[in-house]
Design a binder for these strands. Structure first.
Length: 394
DNA sequence: TCTGGGGTCCTAGGACCC
DNA sequence: TCTGGGGTCCTAGGACCC
């Protein structure tokens, strides 16, 4: 592949920054977004503090001031409250974040149309045509232009990495956060990338990283110098070979401007673990509601699915899944519920349950196909939602 | 005081077919 | 009767990412 200029653009502390647009008086102070329910602010304060929260939940985003106290996304709220009891706690407002997400993505597309969505707060952009033969000087100009456009559209700051591929750009966008731009050419890899921890590579998670550490491999440079045969032995043919490529900054993936969803799911963690017998009415209600919500999501996206899945997490955090493939795809809540109910009969209900989830996969678009016709018939033929207690069979 | 919710991709075994 | 291989679908679990 000829030389490319690929950008990764990452919004800075996105959810928290959107909240600060609303509550500018919190600027410069530690604050986190997270929690499952709105907590009342104590008397005399405008907002609750982290220490006022009790119950389940994790940090979704933390401001840089809160991060300085050791709080980061994914951390349990109760643990975070120990580290930063005075941090302000703001409830998540996903509708608002989606609005700002669209604003910043539209602003980028107005300048550079080849955009790949990577979730609500980040994108890849192929800048090759825009940079032309202007080299890295031109690449920096385009990056600055994108940053300005995002700020004008949203009032928010973002960071960019521009490199020859997605893998390197993802690493690079994190290097000058917040508000920075990092440009890395192929010849800079040994100096800029190799000193970084192997964990910085997108695709090396906590498990793989721990196993690398056990092999004495800590940095990307050390990974690059490792005998490929050793990695293949420990991580398998595919993953081992990929690791070596990644460590050398090799990545040919193209920027994909569109994609079809593969599955749609809904799940919920209960405020308190539920007992399969004593709480069966509540469980049944939640279960039905999840099926209805998944069906609504399918309808909204205009897709149907053939494989219905159930997910259940016990109080000991052990998670089990069961799925069942139907003869014809469906988008109907009652059919989904019946199939998920059959899945439920195949799991042990001998301990308290922490989470329940319903998933529909093997998605397709109802078109002029036989499968779609069958799905339409199935939808019409489905009776009104029955309401037997699914947790009765014990 | 542990550990959200929405996804993707990979692996691996068994069924079933050619 | 035994041996064989490949391809695809289904299912369960797990790693990883935002």
């Amino acid at each position: 592949m000829s030389d490319r200029y690929i950008a990764h653009l990452d919004m800075d502390a996105f959810y928290a920054s959107v909240e600060l647009l609303r509550y500018p008086q919190l600027r410069g102070q530690p604050a986190v977004v997270g929690g499952r329910r709105r907590v009342a602010a104590p008397a005399g304060a405008d907002f609750p503090r982290l220490r006022d929260y009790t119950g389940r939940g994790v940090i979704t985003t933390a401001t840089y001031e809160a991060r300085a106290l050791g709080v980061h996304s994914g951390m349990g709220l109760m643990k975070a409250a120990k580290l930063a009891p005075d941090a302000w706690l703001l409830p998540a407002d996903f509708d608002q974040y989606r609005r700002y997400s669209k604003l910043f993505k539209d602003a980028v597309r107005g300048i550079a149309p080849l955009v790949e969505d990577r979730g609500i707060d980040e994108i890849y952009i192929d800048l090759t045509a825009l940079v032309g033969d202007g080299g890295w000087t031109r690449a920096r100009e385009v990056a600055l232009q994108l940053q300005r456009a995002v700020r004008e559209a949203t009032g928010l700051s973002c960071s960019l990495g521009v490199t020859p591929n997605k893998l390197l750009s993802k690493i690079a966008s994190d290097l000058e956060k917040p508000g920075g731009i990092a440009l890395i050419a192929a010849e800079d890899i040994s100096e800029r990338i190799w000193p970084l921890p192997a964990r910085k590579i997108n695709g090396i998670g906590p498990k793989a990283n721990a196993r690398l550490e056990a092999l004495g491999i800590h940095t990307i440079g050390e990974l690059a110098q490792t005998d490929p045969a050793l990695l293949v032995r420990h991580f398998g043919k595919n993953y081992g070979a990929w690791m070596i490529d990644a460590a050398h900054g090799r990545d040919q993936r193209v920027v994909k401007t569109s994609s079809e969803p593969k599955s749609i799911s809904r799940e919920t963690t209960f405020e308190d673990d539920l007992h399969p017998v004593r709480d069966r009415e509540q469980l049944t209600r939640i279960f039905t509601d999840l099926c209805v919500r998944v069906a609504d999501d399918l309808k909204r996206k205009g897709v149907v699915g053939k494989t219905i899945g159930l997910k259940l997490r016990y109080d000991n955090f052990k998670t089990v899944t069961r799925d069942r493939t139907l003869d014809a795809p469906t988008g109907d809540a009652a059919i989904i519920r019946r199939a998920a109910g059959e899945c439920l009969k195949r799991v042990a209900l001998d301990r308290r349950i922490r989470l329940l989830g319903v998933r529909v996969g093997a998605l397709s678009t109802p078109g002029a196909t036989a499968a779609a016709a069958a799905a339409a018939v199935a939808t019409e033929a489905s009776p009104a939602m029955p309401a037997p207690s699914l947790f009765d069979e014990l």
